[in-house]
């Protein structure tokens, strides 16, 4: 029963969360219509919107809100393993992400079949890849939320995204020890959207796809493990009276 309550809480904890889902659904309907490319691969839309952006927004302050408001003090004293508290909340984001992607798939099929826009090539594969990316980003964001104040949660994530974008645009061809270090960090330390993206394109071989999927799963587990350890050993101070 606690699992269900923790999953449910991830949707009900903030009134903006259902609104975000609705806005995203509207975007799936609108973006193919306004796209200049007549042969837009529709699967890339949920990959970016739901895989990358949705978990970053939905999981903001998932622990940080509790820590800032003091609710965490009561949660921590409940007879529940910290790993379960963390994992079922993460599961809540993944479950709402999965349901979101299912609806997105139906909407995109509708856009393609009824209105004739875009291409639905490998749409199921794109949805699975989106879910994998969503889980990795959600785990990273949830772990950040255990240590970073809620206000900085999204800023840290966006900062990481900008770091990747700047690096890809400006520094990818530069060879210096610092750039090599950043390249290694981006490639192996952050959820690699690029790696998963290649899985959705015809260029990716089976072994590459399998490797990418396993790597992202391992990364998700690593983020979650770090989050659980942080939750278990960090203090939740109150002001002295």
């Amino acid at each position: 029963m606690y699992a269900w309550e923790l999953i449910k809480e991830t949707v009900l904890r903030k009134s903006f969360i259902p609104v975000i889902h609705l806005v995203w659904f509207c975007l799936y309907l609108v973006l193919p219509l306004v796209s200049s490319s007549g042969d837009l691969v529709l699967g890339t839309l949920p990959f970016i919107l739901a895989g990358l952006l949705l978990p970053a927004i939905v999981s903001v302050g998932i622990f940080g809100d509790d820590i800032a408001s003091g609710r965490i003090a009561v949660l921590i004293t409940k007879p529940l393993r910290f790993s379960r508290l963390y994992l079922w909340r993460l599961a809540g984001i993944v479950v709402q992400g999965a349901l979101h992607l299912a609806v997105a798939g139906v909407l995109l099929l509708g856009v393609n079949r009824v209105l004739g826009y875009g291409s639905t090539a490998q749409l199921p594969l794109w949805l699975v890849l989106s879910l994998l990316l969503l889980a990795a980003v959600a785990a990273l964001s949830t772990t950040i939320s255990v240590v970073v104040k809620r206000d900085y949660n999204l800023i840290v994530l966006i900062g990481m995204l900008l770091l990747v974008a700047v690096f890809k645009v400006n520094l990818a061809s530069v060879h210096s020890p610092a750039v090599t270090w950043i390249r290694t960090l981006i490639t192996y330390g952050l959820p690699s959207a690029e790696m998963l993206y290649r899985c959705g394109t015809p260029a990716g071989s089976f072994s590459e796809r399998l490797g990418a999927v396993l790597y992202v799963l391992a990364l998700t587990c690593t983020y979650a493990t770090v989050g659980v350890v942080l939750l278990k050993y960090r203090e939740f101070k109150r002001a002295c009276d």
Binding site: G70, R71, A73, V74, R238
Partner: peptide, 12 residues
Amino acid sequence: GYMPESPVFLGL
């Protein structure tokens, strides 16, 4: 069972 000085609940 712990009751904090300034309790906060999920508003919804």
